[in-house]
Design a protein around this nucleic acid. Structure first.
Lengths: 131, 131
DNA sequence: TTTTCTGCAAATGCTTTGCATGGGA
DNA sequence: TCCCATGCAAAGCATTTGCAGAAAA
């Protein structure tokens, strides 16, 4: 627990938006001007590992940090300004209609990817356990 | 229509997998050894613009090209080997159960992002049309 | 001929790493 | 004291770009 880590956590907890690493960095620098960008990256990586935050990869390769809800959940991303909103929906059913109604977003597209273990790799994992 | 572009299209149409740029590059080089990586990038970018292919950004920053179905659709991505499968489901309802049944994937998580225009930017867009 | 594409290499942007220093427990 | 975190700078990786030559239309 170093002042830098406290500062990162403070920034993330006080913000309800999805900050970029740069934004976190700049926010911290007002309090701790000697903090380095590398430390922010390292701290965020640590927080990700212990499940405190989640990361949203943007199409340009950069990423945003979600410090509020580490569980995977739908996002609304504006194609124009890049704003990210948490889509507050309880089920995956009738999502787009629901999102249009609630958030007044014009939905243009989506990205839906599931992460899991394919049958082949499940076998490999099982074999490795046995060995 | 240059030989290089034909080659890229050929590779993409013949493959039913989700190739990385490198894989496309290597596949082409067997036929056209003088093709450069930059050209592959440029060609894929062009194909993306005209909607012929879609791009799947991986968590490591690299991307895979989907030459079969340009429409956004769910993917199954293996956490171990990185294999990408198109999830053949008709609706978004009861997805994970359905996916487990059909593809025998162990679903560990997902990424669901909607892209659209936020209310603010809709206003801006409207104003710009008027101006 | 005129435009567009190619290929090389350099540049870019975000992120990661190596390593020596320094603060925390 | 011992260890881990920090900060700087350099490296890394995927991708993009500038530009001159070459091919397409």
């Amino acid at each position: 627990m170093t002042p830098q880590r406290v500062a990162v956590l403070k920034v993330l907890s006080e913000s309800n938006t999805h900050l970029s690493i740069e934004e976190i960095f700049n926010a911290i620098r007002t309090d701790f001007p000697m903090t380095s960008l590398a430390t922010v990256y390292k701290t965020v990586a640590t927080l990700k590992e212990i499940g405190e935050v989640s990361e949203i990869k943007m199409t340009d390769g950069s990423s945003r940090i979600d410090g509020q809800s580490p569980e995977p959940h739908p996002h609304l991303i504006c194609l124009d300004c890049g704003e990210i909103l948490d889509a507050d929906t309880e089920s995956l059913e009738h999502l787009t209609d629901c999102l249009n109604d609630r958030h007044h977003y014009q939905i243009k597209g989506y990205r839906l990817d599931f992460f899991g273990i394919c049958p082949e790799c499940q076998k490999i994992r099982t074999e490795q356990q046995v060995t």
